[in-house]
Design a protein around this nucleic acid. Structure first.
Lengths: 322, 322
DNA sequence: TCAAAAGTGTTATCCTTACACCCATGT
DNA sequence: ACATGGGTGTAAGGATAACACTTTTGA
C-alpha cells in the first residue's frame, strides 16, 4: 500500500510489479460408505482445485461456485485453511508465482463412491496411521516406529538425536506419551523429514523402502489434506460442525460413529450422549428408527438455533468478578 | 492444477489467465508504555504492508524479512491470519485483483512510542469499547447500546429485529449475557452494519453522528487489526504465546498485567499464579525485583522447553480407554 | 504505621471420567 | 435365551472459582 524500500532493497511502487497466479484448492469432506472421505480428482491423486477468476465476487464465493458446480452439493460449511506460495509449482524455467489458497469444506453425500473422474476416498487411504478406532494401527509399531527411531539415531549431535526421538514420541504416542489425534500435520511432516513417505523421495533416484505407507498425491496435496483433517479434528471439539456431515435426522449412535470416524478414536457412549444432550445441541424428532437389530433408537435433529444463541465461551483465564 | 471448466463457464488452462497482485500485511503487536499496541504507518492510519516479491523464499520469510528490516526487532512469533481478495483496492478502472495475506506477529520493544513515520498505537485507540479492565467502558451503555438498539428496531421484519437485538446482546454483553472478550471481529462487523463507525460511511455523503467511536484506518485495516486481536485473545488461552511479548525475566504480576491488557479483562491474582505455576510454564531465576514499592517479587523466566515437551491436549471428547 | 504488592490456605462447585447396571427389540 | 444396541444412575477425582488471610518491603 505504501511506497517504501522492501527487504530485498529494490524500490517498489504498489500496483505493478509482483503478479502471481491464484489457485483455490479444496479439502471437501463428507461421510461415505468408506467412512470419512475426501473428494478427489485424477483417481484420487489430487485435490480438486481451480483458478480464482475476475468473475468471482470473492475467494469464498469463487470456491463455493465451482465446488458446488462440480459436486452438485450445497457446501454447508467453508473455512479457509492456509495460503501458500510456491515458486516452482508450474515449471522450472518460468519464474511465476503460484499462490494457493486452501479451504476446508463439509458436505453430505448419499453414499456415492465415484462418478467420472471424481471420487470419494477415505482419509485413511492417505493416512493409514491416523485411524485408531481399532487400537493402534499395526503400521505404527511395525514400520513407522522402528524407522523413526533409526532416523533419530542418524542425527549428528546427541542433542538432535534426543530432540528427534522426543518429537517422534509426542507425535506418534510412543513411550508413555498419549496419542493425540490432532497432530496430523506434525506426523506427516515428521514422516517427510524422515523420508518415510513418497513425497520425500521426489527428485531423488533411490526409493529407500517399498511400499511407502499411505497413498501420496501430486505436489503438496497430501499435506493440505493433513492440514484439513487436523483442523476438523480440532474444531469438532468446540464448534458444532459435525452436524454439517450428518443427515437431517440421526440417532445419537450415528452421531457418535461420525465423531469417532473423524477423530479416529472411540468415545465413551454414555458420556458422549450426556455431553451432546447437556449442551442442547440436538432435539428429539419424536420418531424412532425402524432399525434392523436392537432396541429402536430415538431420532434427533440438530438445533440450528444454537448457531445464533450460543458462542463458545472458551474461558481459560481465572477472571475476577467485576 | 487440472484442466477443467470453471464455474463461470469459461475454459481455463492452468498457468496463465488470472494474475493478481499479492500484498503481505502485518498486525505487529507489542507491549509499550501505552499498553497493548500495534505497529502502524501513516500516523496510525494504516498497518504496515508490503508486496510479496520473487526474491522472497516464502510468504513467511517475505513478511519476516521486511518487518524485521523495518522494526529492527526479531519477530519471535508469526502466524497467518487470513487471506482476502479485493477487486477494487487499486482503482476503479483497472480490473486487477489484489490478494492480501495478513499475519499476526509478536515482538518486544523497549518502550519507544514513535520513530519517523512508524508508531506504536494502543489497540484501544482503535477499539475503545474493547478495554474492560476498569469495568464496562462508558461508551457502551452511553453510545453504542442505544444506537445498536435503534438499528435493531429499524429492521423490516419482526424476526430480523429480534435477530439483530440478539446479535448485539451477545456481542456486547447486553441484557444478561456475559462479556466475551474474543468477539472482537463480531463487534466490529456489527458496528459496521449498524453504520456506527467511519468505515461504513465511506462513499456516502452524510455522517450520521459525530464523532464516531474509535479511530479508523485506511481500507479494511481496522478490520484486519480486529482479526489479529481476536486471534491473540483466543490463543493466549491455550498456547504460551504471551511470553513472546514479555522481557526475558519478569514477575508474575507483570505477566498478569500483560494478560489483562491483551484480554481487556482483570484476572484473579491468586488463581492466576497457581494456573501459571501449576502448568510449569515458568521457572524462578532466583533473583527478586528491586522494586519501588511493596514486597520484592520473585523473578521468573519462561521455560522454553515446554514448547518441545508439551502439546496442549485440548480434549473435549469423552474418550473410552483402549 | 500504613499502603502496596507478594504470597498461602482452604472450601464449594462443577465438570469429566469411569463403572455398573437396566431396557427394548429381533432372531 | 441371547445378542445387539439404547439408555440411566452414580460416585470418584480433578480442575476452577471464590473467599479469607498472612508476609514482606518502602515511604
Amino acid at each position: 500500500m505504501q511506497n517504501q524500500a522492501n527487504a530485498t532493497g529494490k524500490e517498489t511502487s504498489f500496483g505493478r510489479a509482483h503478479d502471481a497466479n491464484v489457485d483455490l484448492i479444496a479439502v471437501v469432506t463428507a461421510m461415505t460408505d468408506q467412512g470419512p472421505s475426501v473428494l478427489t480428482v485424477r483417481q484420487g491423486g489430487a485435490l480438486p482445485s481451480g483458478p480464482f477468476e475476475l468473475g468471482h465476487r470473492s475467494l469464498q464465493s469463487g470456491l463455493r461456485a465451482w465446488v458446488e458446480h462440480q459436486t452438485s452439493h450445497q457446501l454447508g460449511y467453508i473455512e479457509q485453511l492456509y495460503t501458500f506460495a510456491d515458486r516452482d509449482r508450474i515449471g522450472e524455467e518460468r519464474q511465476q508465482r503460484v499462490i494457493s489458497i486452501s479451504y476446508l469444506a463439509l458436505t453430505r453425500v448419499d453414499g456415492a463412491v465415484a462418478s467420472g473422474k471424481r471420487a470419494w476416498r477415505s482419509w485413511y487411504h492417505y493416512f493409514p496411521w491416523e485411524d485408531h478406532r481399532s487400537g493402534v494401527p499395526s503400521i505404527i509399531p511395525g514400520i513407522l516406529q522402528p524407522h523413526l527411531l533409526a532416523w533419530a539415531g542418524d542425527a549428528g549431535h546427541d542433542a538432535e538425536r534426543r530432540e528427534r526421538r522426543q518429537r517422534a514420541a509426542i507425535a506418534f504416542g510412543l513411550d508413555d506419551h498419549d496419542w493425540n489425534e490432532e497432530l496430523v500435520l506434525q506426523r506427516y511432516e515428521l514422516l517427510y523429514e524422515a523420508a518415510l513417505i513418497d513425497e520425500a523421495m521426489r527428485g531423488s533416484e533411490q526409493s529407500a523402502f517399498l511400499p511407502m505407507p499411505g497413498t501420496s498425491m501430486i505436489a503438496d496435496h497430501r499435506r493440505i489434506l493433513a492440514t484439513g483433517i487436523a483442523r476438523l479434528r480440532s474444531k469438532i471439539k468446540y464448534r458444532p460442525v459435525v452436524f454439517e456431515l450428518m443427515p437431517p435426522v440421526f440417532t445419537l449412535l450415528q452421531l457418535q460413529r461420525t465423531v469417532e470416524a473423524l477423530s479416529g478414536r472411540l468415545v465413551h457412549k454414555p458420556n458422549f450422549r450426556r455431553l451432546i444432550e447437556q449442551q442442547d445441541l440436538v432435539e428429539e424428532t419424536g420418531e424412532t428408527t425402524a432399525d434392523t437389530v436392537g432396541r429402536p433408537a430415538k431420532l434427533f435433529r440438530f438445533r440450528h438455533a444454537v448457531l445464533d444463541e450460543r458462542v463458545v465461551a472458551g474461558t481459560k483465564l481465572p477472571l475476577s468478578r467485576a
